[in-house]
């Protein structure tokens, strides 16, 4: 469990994290925070930033991942977020997940990977830390890892079919799937008690060594997309076998 920082250290963290972002992105995040605050008023419980903006490795093409925690999801209230969120997305790729405060602990059984990912590296920009007291069970984590990896495997098959004459589309799709499986693979390593930085390159490297599969085509930007898709399929197959056979008798979070 990650301890909740004090309000002072939280504020410092938020400022530090925002200061590391490019000025234009920082300006949009601050503008979005003000707009969301104005739109939701007392119904805004907290705002959390996670992902590469906090973890590191943020590039000019990275998303800024935010979680807006609210205490009321009335449709009219949510509609007030339409423009701030659309502008944030178009201007600076700010991607917002909207969660209700009461559902966060109850959804730990079905969102263990998301919560693992957020808890591993996040900063509170507004309000309290909604993830401070969460408990994630190992079996829930294992099931979700398997589900995510199998889902990615199915999507990869369809992607290869749909992009038969669209190499750019295949490349974009493989890139998207890689980002999608970063967190499940990091969780898989956690299930093996392997603690490692959870950026994509490191996770692929460690998982490749552990499962004895070649991940180099996935990390080479210049590589053509079909070999990358084939390598991704191999990694997914090995990871699915691994998680499927995993002993889940342990129950520690």
């Amino acid at each position: 469990m990650i301890p909740s920082p004090s309000p002072t250290s939280r504020a410092k963290n938020a400022q530090t994290v925002l200061a590391l972002l490019p000025a234009a992105v920082r300006h949009r995040v601050e503008e979005l925070l003000a707009a969301v605050n104005q739109a939701l008023g007392r119904h805004l419980v907290s705002v959390v930033v996670y992902g590469s903006a906090v973890r590191g490795g943020f590039t000019h093409r990275s998303d800024v991942d935010l979680i807006l925690v609210i205490d009321d999801d009335d449709a009219l209230l949510l509609r007030r977020l339409a423009d701030p969120l659309a502008i944030g997305r178009a201007a600076a790729r700010i991607d917002c997940l909207i969660l209700k405060d009461s559902e966060i602990p109850r959804a730990a059984d079905v969102f263990p990977i998301l919560y693992d990912d957020v808890r591993a590296c996040h900063t509170v920009l507004f309000g309290g830390d909604p993830f401070a007291e969460l408990v994630v069970h190992t079996e829930h984590r294992r099931l979700r890892v398997e589900q995510e990896l199998r889902d990615a495997r199915i999507r990869l098959r369809r992607l290869v079919v749909d992009t038969a004459v669209d190499d750019v589309g295949l490349s974009v799709g493989v890139d998207h799937l890689l980002k999608q499986i970063r967190a499940p693979l990091a969780s898989l390593l956690r299930l093996h008690d392997i603690v490692t930085p959870d950026d994509l390159i490191t996770v692929l490297d460690v998982i490749g060594k552990r499962l004895q599969v070649d991940t180099i085509p996935l990390t080479q930007k210049a590589a053509s997309s079909l070999p990358a898709a084939i390598a991704l399929g191999t990694v997914l197959d090995a990871a699915i076998d691994d998680v499927d056979e995993l002993d889940t008798s342990r129950t520690v979070t």
Partner: peptide
């Protein structure tokens, strides 16, 4: 694109501050 313009209801017409 002021903050108040950003918070305008989406049912409003094409206007600066509304996507």
């Amino acid at each position: 694109a002021s903050t108040s313009a950003m918070a305008l209801a989406p049912s409003q017409p094409l206007i600066v501050g509304r996507m």
